[in-house]
Nucleic acid binder design. Structure first.
Length: 476
DNA sequence: AGGCAGCGCAC
DNA sequence: GTGCGC
DNA sequence: GCCT
């Protein structure tokens, strides 16, 4: 076994256990790193809830030969070690004559990079599959999309096909059929309004987030909510009495009176449209309406012509492409953009960068809001500085302008950044939550897993990076 | 009652 | 310091 | 908004 990184601090694998294992392993002569070290770390212990296969895919560009072992495998290994070796109370240690780790059989908790198709190969499979749809116009693809919502046959089937083989998509419901459009249409409007009201309402930001979460849950359900199964929502975390009441009202009367009341407020309609401009948030939207007396996007455009200063540079770009940015990007086009970026990168910096397109694209969505591409230099980068670009791109004539984000991270941070920017939000949040809760269990220096080159790494620093980490497989 | 993430950039 | 998007 |  080469140098090991125990991915402690995630999900079910506590720092404490990680430390415990690290001690056991190092007594047997293993070297344990405090964090993933590209090119050096050879083995990664993967917590429950993260699929080793996903990690393998993520890490493969960073090290040629990384093996991912599941936590369950490690537990088994340690159990056998303790029972066979019988030295669990032996503090004095040395590495004197106890049994070696009696390793359990590897399947199914073991993944090796070379045992799996490389990510690139998988991409090509997808590429072929996309080709058929790639020739359709956006409108046609859209139609297919919406048709699927009405009559559940079409959309569902083709997506199932697309989803089947993708490890990184297995647990994701992105792009699946929404069986609860009858509810989410109302709640989406409500969310937009809460977004707009922002700080007007006490805890507005979090109220909005709560509804957002709720809508995600509804979208992910494999069935439609009706009066009979309404109660099944009750036990879900994050769904309280207000939300159940809302759903009850919609199911009963087909309307949401609270939403209607909010929509009647003066300026709501205008502000909602302003906020759809990239870079315009609640405050700017309200100022445009109340201070500048602007009532619509077309008025806003006129006013910006005479007074460009009322919007900043980014917002003006957002306004210019207002309509285009509302459109979702077909998966096939995201892939083309990725390819174009890859070509450009190769032309400028041949062989110097690896890149991954993250966001909902990586979660397997059939349509995305923007394109989010992460880079890392292949060569050893000593610092963890990052850089990013938030801008606009277009493939060429006949294509729409699209939002494009480019972010560069060090090779060390790259896998975690990829994980993080793959989302979803909700999943990210839950990990963050977890990380904070356990911040107290900061790693003592002497317990720094005996890492070699990275001994000085503090938990806080490591935590910051690790708090990145979320896995698409963990999403509900 | 208090927390719900926190950062960098533009202004 | 605020607003915004990430 | 919901949760502790």
């Amino acid at each position: 076994m080469g140098p090991i990184w125990i991915m402690a601090g995630y999900g079910s694998l506590s720092i404490r256990m990680g430390r415990h294992w690290a001690q056991i392993l190092s007594r047997h002569g293993a070297r344990v790193h405090a964090r993933f070290w590209p090119g050096k770390t050879r083995v990664v212990i993967v917590p429950k809830g993260l699929a080793p296969g996903i990690l393998t895919q993520l890490l493969s560009p960073c090290g040629d030969d990384v093996t991912c072992l599941h936590q369950a495998w490690m537990e088994e290994a340690v159990r056998r070690c303790l029972s066979l070796g019988g030295r669990k109370r032996d503090r004095e240690g040395g590495r004197a004559g106890t049994a070696d780790l009696a390793l359990p059989p590897l399947n199914p908790y073991y993944y090796h990079v070379n045992a799996l198709p490389r990510p690139e190969e998988k991409m090509n499979v997808a590429a072929g599959k996309e080709k058929r749809r790639g020739r359709q116009t956006t409108e046609e693809a859209e139609k297919e999309e919406e048709g699927g919502e009405g009559e559940s046959g079409l959309g569902g089937r083709h997506r199932q096909l697309e989803t089947a083989k993708w490890t990184c998509r297995e647990a994701s419901r992105a792009g699946l059929l929404n069986h609860n459009v009858h509810l989410t249409v109302f709640l989406d409007e409500l969310i937009a309004i809460y977004d707009m009201l922002g700080s007007d309402i006490a805890g507005g930001r979090y109220r909005r987030a709560q509804y957002h979460r709720f809508v995600q849950i509804l979208r992910g359900l494999p069935f439609a909510i009706n009066k009979d199964n309404l109660r099944s929502l009750k036990k879900k975390r994050g769904i309280g009495s207000s939300m159940l009441k809302d759903i009850g009202e919609i199911l009963e009367y087909g309307r949401l009176s609270r939403l209607e009341a909010l929509k009647r407020r003066e300026g709501v309609e205008a502000c909602l449209s302003f906020q759809k401009v990239w870079g315009v948030g609640p405050a700017t939207a309200r100022a445009l309406f109340t201070h500048d007396k602007i009532q619509s996007i077309s008025e806003l455009r006129a006013r910006v012509r005479s007074h460009p200063g009322i919007l900043n540079e980014n917002q003006r770009v957002g306004l210019r492409y207002y309509e285009e940015f509302q459109e979702r990007i077909p998966r096939s086009e995201v892939r083309k953009i990725e390819e174009r970026v890859r070509e450009g990168t190769e032309a400028l910096y041949p062989g110097m960068f690896i890149l991954t397109t993250c966001g909902s694209y990586r979660r397997g969505a059939s349509h995305c809001g923007d394109v989010d591409i992460l880079f890392a230099p292949i060569s050893d980068a000593t610092d963890d500085k990052s850089d990013s670009y938030f801008g606009v791109c277009r493939l060429g004539d006949g294509y729409l302008h699209r939002r494009l984000d480019l972010k560069v991270y060090s090779r060390q941070q790259y896998p975690f950044a990829v994980l993080y920017f793959t989302g979803s939000d909700h999943f990210n949040r839950s990990m963050r939550c977890w990380a904070i809760k356990h911040k107290g269990e900061a790693l003592e220096k002497e317990h720094d897993y005996g890492g070699d080159s990275d001994r000085e790494e503090t938990w806080d620093r490591a935590n910051k990076k690790e708090a990145w980490a979320l896995s698409p497989s963990e999403m509900e």
